[in-house]
Design a protein around this nucleic acid. Structure first.
Length: 589
RNA sequence: GGAUUGGUAGUUCAGUUGGUUAGAAUGCCGGCCUGUCACGCCGGAGGUCGCGAGUUCGAGUCUCGUCCAGUCCGCCA
């Protein structure tokens, strides 16, 4: 049907006759001459219709936006002064000889240009139209380039692409599962995989040595700008390797992607332990583009009267941290109130502050509602420790360590972005030495990564002090965003049993849910480990998108629905009966 | 589950203290126009003010409920 893509027709084709197909992007009717900008995947080309070509002219007169047309015409250089430097094809135009309307189109529900902002729900309702827009075409094409890069890279490194089941079984820990009723086993349910975790480990037991998959994963949890209920992981696993090898190879992969597709050298990725990350940044995924750090000051405040500080300072689970904001003294009372409100969503009860106006005047040069509570001597010691300068402001968080870390950690990023403090565009890093477990609200322990993560100690040591045990896990972090994470896995049945015990998963439950894994560990499981990247997040970061939805062709809304297909939808009673399900009447409040 | 923002023409938005016939831009339709490129000029059509109650002489505007969409907290091994 065509000889060229629209966007490929340039001056090298001058004086040749070409045929192309596409959508009418814009029509400009000058009475005696009609211009059609025709668009396809590769770009736009301007076509001119003269009244001398009567039939084509009349057809061109009748076409409208988004009509699908086939045009045959002569490529010619544009007249002097009529070129368009903004277009790849702007030096030429097509003199239209024949035009066929392949399909008419209704008026588009929203403009497809780059100038008009359009509400996201409208875009999602007509996603197939939205995807015609240049930005979306570029995003999805970029995503393709990256996944192709990944496949080529991993293939070259000896990784095999192996598919794993979508219909599998529910897992006891982790996110809520998406369930699929079984027709042939009524009353039983499949679960969609939260990740191919167990299967990739079994593939290691099977001796495939190196596996990867660009795998859809499903988690029935509430959505965020960077979270969809179905998302894509770059899933990787290898045998007879240690952490270093996994980290090296995946770091090389990510570096290569940035080099080839954004022309950016990410350099070496610094490594930081979990505990250091929490101490300095209040986060297990620090944004290293922001130069500020949290500083502990609890030791200076243990003996003061002021309970708001002294309480957490003396509490082993408490924390008192200061955040120095260079140049922050210019913040108004209103700004500070806004930040106080901001930290309150993380549970902080307040936000104390000290402005440094004239340090040379000592305590007189400071401005703060709290100095009278913490005392002049303590205040000056804190100022000394923080190495403050005139014009700075210091914020304080005092509470349970978890709340201080979350609140002041988030404040650090918010203030850093608000005040334009970014020191670079890209800040990759590794976070290592995670704890094995963390405390749940009911006092039990839960796995920080997943229950198959190997600890960096023996089963006996793990049993003796599980709360302080470290794991052989690692997270790759980019700009404060967790790009991917993984670990060395447990390949020993005894160790696996100890972990299940600590997690309070009974032997019956172990047998029922993971019997196959425990068995597999007895049949010669090699040492192995791996990592999984969030592909959607990676592409979101690389394209500078505000949301993961901008890099997914057909995403869900925040209520995990699709406004285009209207999924999820009701099903016939007959279908329910076949799978042995009866709906409960809606609960009334 | 919670906090918060929004929902008015196809689209993006404005709409004052509750007060006449709800406006603008753009798009759409018609006319004019031979060098535009987000063409230009003239004219026209286009509204369940998300939905449902309530207050009021009177509601786009106030109150309550509800639905949808966005951001965030919880949640997401």
């Amino acid at each position: 049907m065509r000889s060229h893509y629209c966007g490929e027709i340039t001056e090298t084709l001058a004086d040749q006759t070409v045929t192309f197909c596409g959508w009418v992007h814009r029509r400009r009717d000058h009475g005696g001459v009609i211009f059609l900008d025709v668009r396809d995947r590769e770009g736009l080309v301007q076509t001119v219709f003269d009244p001398d070509t009567v039939k084509a002219f009349n057809t061109a007169n009748g076409v409208r936006s988004e009509y699908v047309v086939q045009i045959k015409g002569l490529v010619r250089l544009r007249p002097a002064g009529a070129t368009n430097d903004n277009m790849t094809t702007g030096k030429i135009e097509i003199l239209g000889k024949e035009i066929t309307v392949l399909n008419k189109a209704n008026t588009p529900p929203f403009p497809l240009d780059d100038y008009s902002p359009v509400g996201e729900d409208v875009r999602l309702s007509y996603r197939y139209m939205d995807l015609r827009r240049d930005e979306m075409q570029r995003n999805l094409r970029f995503r393709h380039k990256v996944t192709t890069h990944i496949r080529n890279f991993l293939d070259k490194e000896g990784f095999l692409d192996i598919e794993t089941p979508i219909l599998t079984r529910a897992t006891p820990e982790g996110a809520r599962d998406y369930l699929v009723p079984s027709r042939t086993h009524q009353g039983s349910f499949f679960a969609l995989p939260q990740s191919p975790q167990l299967f990739k480990q079994l593939l290691m037991v099977s001796g495939f040595d190196r596996y990867y998959q660009i795998a859809k994963c499903f988690r029935d949890e509430d959505l965020r700008a960077d979270r969809q209920p179905e998302f894509t992981q770059i899933d990787i696993e290898a045998s007879f390797v240690n952490e270093e090898q996994i980290m090296d190879i995946t770091q090389e992969m990510i570096k290569g992607i940035f080099e080839d597709h954004l022309n950016i050298d990410l350099g070496d990725f610094p490594r930081m332990s979990y505990s250091e990350a929490m101490r300095r940044f209040g986060s297990d995924k620090p944004d290293l583009r922001i130069p500020m750090e949290l500083v502990d000051v609890a030791d200076l405040l243990q003996d003061i009267e002021f309970k708001v500080f002294a309480g957490p300072a003396k509490d082993p689970k408490g924390r008192v941290a200061a955040l120095k904001v260079p140049g922050g003294a210019k913040l108004s009372r209103k700004d500070i109130d806004a930040y106080t409100k901001y930290v309150s969503i993380y549970g902080a009860k307040g936000l104390a502050w000290i402005k440094v106006n004239e340090l040379e005047k000592g305590i007189e040069g400071l401005q703060s509602p709290i100095i009278k509570f913490i005392g002049e001597e303590n205040t000056m010691k804190i100022m000394e420790r923080l190495e403050v300068a005139n014009g700075d402001i210091v914020f304080f968080g005092a509470d349970k360590a978890k709340i201080v870390n979350e609140a002041i950690g988030a404040l650090r990023i918010k203030v850093g972005l608000d005040l334009g403090m970014l020191t670079c565009e890209w800040a990759p890093m590794w976070v290592v030495d995670f704890p094995m477990f963390e405390e749940t609200s009911d006092g039990g322990l839960t796995a920080i990564h997943h229950p198959f993560t190997a600890p960096s100690c023996s089963p006996e040591e793990l049993k003796a002090d599980p709360a302080n045990a470290l794991s052989r896990a690692y997270d790759m972090v980019l700009n404060g965003c967790e790009l991917g994470g993984g670990s060395l896995r447990i390949h020993d049945q005894e160790m696996q049993k100890v972990v299940f015990e600590i997690l309070n998963i009974s032997e019956e439950e172990q047998r029922e849910k993971f019997g196959f894994l425990l068995d597999a560990l007895q049949f010669g499981a090699p040492p192995h480990g791996g990592l999984a990247f969030g592909l959607d997040r990676l592409i979101m970061l690389m394209t500078g998108s505000e949301s993961i939805r901008e890099v997914i062709a057909f995403p869900k809304t925040q209520s995990a629905a699709c406004v285009m297909t209207d999924a999820p939808g009701l099903v016939e009673t007959k279908n329910l009966r076949e799978v042995g399900i009866q709906l409960r009447p809606k609960e009334t409040k």
